[in-house]
Each structure stands twice: as C-alpha cells, then as structure tokens.
Simulated assay, not measured.
Amino acid sequence: MLSDFRTMFAEVTRAILPIVFLILVLHVFLPRTSINTILMLIIGSIMVILGMTLFLMGVKIGLLPMGEAIGSEIPKSGSIILIVITGFLFGFLATIAEPDVRVLADMIQTVSDNGILKLQLIVVIAVGVGFFVSTAVLRIIYNIPIAYLFTAGYLAIICLSLISPPDYAPIAFDAGGVTTGPITVPFILALGIGVTSVLGGKSPLSDGFGLIGLASIGPIIGVLLMGVIFV
C-alpha cells in the first residue's frame, strides 16, 4: 500500500509541478504580486498534490474494484429489468457525485441569472448518463454494434441542435464533457469490464470500452431536450 502511495504521489507531482512552475514564473513577472500570494499558491499546490494522490488511491482501491464487482454480478441475476435499473442508478448517482458537473452547473446558474437552475441541470445531466449507461450494458449483453448506437445518438443530437434554442447547444456539449470526470469515468469503465468478465464470448477490449463515449451522449441530448421543452 505504501509503495502504491509513493508511486501515485510521484505521478501526480510530475503532472502538477510544470503547471505550478509556470504560474510561479508568471507571478514573478506580474506587478503587484505579494509574497503572501506566492506562499498561498505554493501551499495550495501542495494540498492539491496530496489531495489528488489520496483521491486516486481511493479510486484504485475502492471505486474500481466495486465497479467491477457490481458489473460482474448484474448479469448473473438474469433479469433485464434489474440490469437496466442498476445501470441507470449507478450512472445517475456517479454523475450526481461528479465535481466537474457541479462546477458547470454553478457557473451556468450564475451567468444565466438563475435562468437555468443548478439542481435542474445536474438532474438532467445525471438522467442522461444513467440512461446511456443502461443502454451500454444492454449493448454488451445483446452484442449490439456500438457504431449503431453512436450513429443514432449523434443523429439525435444534430436534429435537436436545429430546434433547440442557440444558448443551449454550447451548454449541452460542455455537459457531455464534464461527465468524463474522476468519479464517473473509473466507475463506468469498471462496470463495463465487470459485465464482460462474466459473459462468455465477450472481449474486455471490444465490448468493455466505449461506455464513456456513449454516456457522454446522454447529457448532450438531455440539455438540448431541456431547451426544447422548457423554453
């Protein structure tokens, strides 16, 4: 465990230090930059490195095994309804917990002057992800080519983009992007790999991946539909 922590700490440090160095250089050359500001930046950077290390360790020893375990147990039930409900709930709840989604919802609520409420946007994004996670799990079980789902999904996006208010299109595509965050991605990937591990004739490479791409379609369609229905 300690060796894993050291390895993760080193990886996070290598990723963050160049950014911190660049910001420090800019602060040195910017006028009116106080020593307190630079010290706060250094302290904050250390906290970011430690926080990211602990978070990624938690993902590695907690979220990933849990996702694979759940994914491997779902198909054993033999109930399609249970599979759909479970896939939806975990996609929904993982998105609710995603920090990136909350940041986007906060910013949208602020700039829209409460025209688009934070809770409303979070729920729409989470429902979109949950729906497409369920669809992705069914795709694995029934061996549906992923190209068909991508084609149908993006055709729906194109059609909705033509009738949705112009302000909603950029929000929708950003909503699809923020779902690929540090909580949603590992859990959904682990879920897909877990499902393929117990189904005969399934390849973890060709069948276990692609869930994130499908899941990110859901929020785009959801936000565009919100624009069509509520505006």
Rank of each mutant, 00 (worst) to 15 (best):
N36P: 09
T37H: 13
T37V: 10
T37W: 09
T37F: 15
T37S: 15
M40R: 13
M40E: 12
M40K: 14
L41K: 10
I42D: 07
I42P: 10
G44Q: 08
G44V: 10
I46F: 10
M47D: 14
V48S: 02
I49F: 02
L50M: 12
G51A: 05
G51S: 08
G51Q: 07
M52Y: 15
M52I: 14
T53N: 03
T53G: 04
F55Y: 15
F55T: 12
F55S: 09
L56W: 08
M57K: 12
M57I: 09
M57L: 15
M57F: 15
M57D: 03
G58Y: 12
G58F: 12
G58M: 09
K60Q: 11
K60I: 05
K60G: 04
G62S: 09
G62R: 11
L64D: 05
P65K: 04
M66R: 13
M66C: 11
M66V: 11
M66P: 11
G67M: 01
A69N: 12
I70N: 02
S72I: 08
I74Y: 01
I74D: 02
I74V: 13
P75F: 06
K76H: 01
K76I: 08
K76T: 10
S77M: 14
S77V: 13
S77P: 02
G78K: 04
G78M: 04
G78S: 09
I80M: 07
L82R: 08
I83A: 07
I83L: 13
I85T: 06
I85C: 03
T86G: 03
T86L: 09
F88Y: 07
F88R: 00
F88D: 01
F88N: 00
L89D: 04
L89H: 11
L89C: 15
F90C: 09
G91H: 13
A94E: 03
A94R: 02
A94K: 00
T95M: 05
T95K: 02
I96Q: 06
A97T: 06
A97Y: 06
A97D: 03
P99H: 11
V101R: 02
R102C: 06
R102V: 12
R102Y: 04
R102M: 12
V103H: 07
L104H: 01
A105W: 00
M107F: 14
M107A: 13
I108D: 00
Q109A: 07
V111A: 08
V111Q: 15
V111K: 11
V111L: 10
D113R: 05
N114S: 13
N114G: 07
G115D: 07
I116D: 00
L117V: 09
K118N: 11
L119Y: 13
L119F: 08
L119N: 12
L119E: 11
Q120H: 02
Q120R: 04
I122M: 08
V123S: 01
V123H: 03
V123E: 00
